[in-house]
Simulated scan of single mutants.
Amino acid sequence: MAEVLDADAVRGELEKLDGWSGDPAVLTRTAELGSFPEAIDVVNRVAAVAEELDHHPDIDIRWRTVTFRCATHSVGGVTRRDFQLAQRIDQILGGTA
């Protein structure tokens, strides 16, 4: 079973990501997209990745602003799986996935 990362590990991994913040409880990134349809497209692309990884973020959509929250609910905090998902979300937001 996945283990919750400690604060030092989370800080170290956050340095490798773009625009994310977090602690051992949850990783968060908010992205402002160009339009509502573009925001929905990003959410749909993230949904496909989440299904592929069998690991799903919490997603909040407010017009063209999307917030992603990643945590492994089954263990009560952030694990390596959350960073894997966050990296894939970054690729989508950066247009490389």
Rank of each mutant, 00 (worst) to 15 (best):
Trp63Gly: 02
Val43Ser: 03
Gly12Lys: 13
Pro37His: 10
Trp20Ala: 07
Pro24Ala: 03
Ile61Phe: 10
Arg81Met: 10
Ile59Lys: 05
Pro24Val: 06
Leu14Pro: 01
Trp63Gln: 00
Arg69Met: 09
Glu51Lys: 13
Leu27Cys: 06
Val42Ser: 08
Ala31Phe: 13
Trp63Ser: 03
Leu17Ser: 06
Thr65Ser: 15
Asp8Thr: 12
Glu51Cys: 06
Arg88Cys: 05
Thr65Asp: 11
Gly77Asn: 11
Met1Arg: 10
Glu38Val: 13
Met1Asn: 09
Gly95Ile: 05
Phe36Met: 03
Arg81Gln: 14
Gly22Thr: 11
Ala25Ser: 15
Glu3Asp: 13
Val43Glu: 05
Leu5Tyr: 09
Ile92Pro: 00
Arg88Val: 00
Glu3Thr: 11
Ala2Leu: 11
Pro37Lys: 11
Asp41Ala: 15
Asp41Tyr: 09
Gln84Met: 12
Ile92Gln: 06
Asp23Tyr: 01
Asn44Pro: 02
Lys16Phe: 09
Pro37Val: 10
Arg29Gly: 03
Thr67Ser: 13
Val49Trp: 02
Thr72Pro: 01
Pro37Glu: 10
Pro24Cys: 02
Val43Arg: 00
Met1Lys: 11
Phe36Glu: 05
Val66Asp: 07
Pro24Leu: 04
Leu17Thr: 00
Thr28Ile: 12
Pro24Tyr: 02
Asp8Ala: 15
Gly95His: 06
Val26Ala: 04
Glu52Lys: 14
Ile92Trp: 05
Val4Asp: 07
Asp90Trp: 08
Ser74Gln: 13
Gly77Tyr: 09
Glu13Asp: 11
Gly12Arg: 13
Glu52Phe: 04
Gly22Leu: 00
Leu27Gln: 07
Arg81Ile: 05
Asp23Gly: 12
Asp82Ile: 03
Glu13Met: 15
Arg80Gly: 14
Val10Ser: 05
Glu3Phe: 09
Val49Met: 09
Leu14Cys: 03
Pro24Ser: 07
Asp82Cys: 01
Arg88Glu: 15
Gly19Tyr: 03
Asp6Val: 05
Arg64Gly: 00
Thr30Asn: 02
Val75Pro: 03
Leu33Thr: 05
Glu32Ser: 12
His55Met: 12
Ile61Gln: 04
Arg29Phe: 05
Glu3Cys: 04
Arg62Gly: 08
Val10Tyr: 06
Leu85Phe: 12
Ser35Lys: 04
Asp18Val: 08
Phe36Val: 08
Glu32Val: 14
Ala31Thr: 12
Phe68Gly: 06
Asp41Ser: 15
Ala2Asn: 14
Leu53Val: 08
Asn44Cys: 10
Arg69Tyr: 04
Ala48Pro: 01
Val4Asn: 00
Gly76Gln: 07
Leu5Cys: 02
Leu17Asn: 02
His56Tyr: 08
Gly77Ile: 10
Ala39Val: 11
Thr79Gly: 07
Ile40Arg: 02
Thr28Cys: 02
Asp58Leu: 11
Arg88Phe: 00
Ile59Asn: 05
Leu14Thr: 03
Glu38Ala: 15
Ile89Arg: 07
Glu52Gly: 09
Ala2Pro: 15
Asp60Phe: 12
Gly22Asp: 05
Ser35Phe: 06
Val49Pro: 04
Asp82Gln: 07
Ala7Pro: 07
Val43Lys: 00
Asp58Glu: 15
Val10Gly: 08
Arg11Asp: 15
Pro24Asp: 04
Leu5Asp: 00
Gly76Cys: 09
Val75Tyr: 11
Ser35Arg: 10
Val66Phe: 04
Asp23Ser: 14
Ser74Glu: 14
